[in-house]
Nucleic acid binder design. Structure first.
Lengths: 122, 122
DNA sequence: ATAGATGCAAAGGGTTTGCACTTGA
DNA sequence: TCAAGTGCAAACCCTTTGCATCTAT
């Protein structure tokens, strides 16, 4: 990630502007509006690079392709709209889940995903 | 799923005996001990069939291949050991997560996954 | 000028499908 | 018997990689 290219700029802008976790395909579609010839391989390489330099984090939801969002947000979870498939960030967290952990197991982190209808789809 | 074959019996047994969500590859490995020539395609087809007839449910964890477990268990969540990769069932559930749902969104279900070390790996 | 970045197309890894053979009922 | 079921290999889909070309510095 040494050089600043049109492609990378476009990908960063897309992540920043849409402000929700995006799949590589979503990034490609949005970024192609800024850089028409953009290839999917460049999207994958750039996302990997952003991940490596810590500018982006991977958001993996059950049964979904990995998505990416800009790093630096505080602990949060996600909501996936079962109608349109978009993923949104959620505020808050139930906190202590230690009740659920059986003896002998040690929990280090957790993921919570809510499913339902988003504002546009209900 | 009309006929009862050695292959299907073996796959059902494996799901029942190991009693945790299994990936197709895990099912194949375990079921091959009972039916040596078993093919991966048959595993996929059988799992799909079990799913369709409601005997099994799919357990999808973030960033993991889908796993399968026998149906009929009550609402529960999962624990994935970050050392050995095995997935276990958890009792309990924090219950009401409505605090996390933004206005305009409607949550219908949720998934919680805890990550850490299992009894064998800590 | 030149090493890094890109786009294409081929290669990978996991899942599904087509098809001839096998087998349960 | 004979359609459902199986195993193999090819096909698929998404992601990664190789390589010739392009480009930021």
């Amino acid at each position: 990630m040494e050089r600043s290219t049109r492609q990378r700029q476009a990908i960063r802008e897309v992540l920043s502007e849409l402000n929700r976790p995006l799949s590589p395909a979503e990034v490609l579609e949005a970024a192609r509006r800024k850089v028409p010839g953009l290839g999917i391989a460049t999207v994958y390489r750039t996302l990997k690079g952003l991940l490596a330099e810590g500018s982006a984090v991977m958001v993996e939801l059950p049964g979904e392709p990995p998505r990416y969002e800009l790093a630096g947000k505080k602990h949060h979870h996600h909501f996936r709209c079962t109608r349109c498939g978009k993923v949104f960030e959620l505020e808050g967290c139930p906190g202590d889940l230690s009740d659920m952990v059986p003896a002998g197991f040690r929990a280090e982190r957790h993921e919570i995903v809510l499913y339902g209808a988003c504002t546009e789809c209900h």
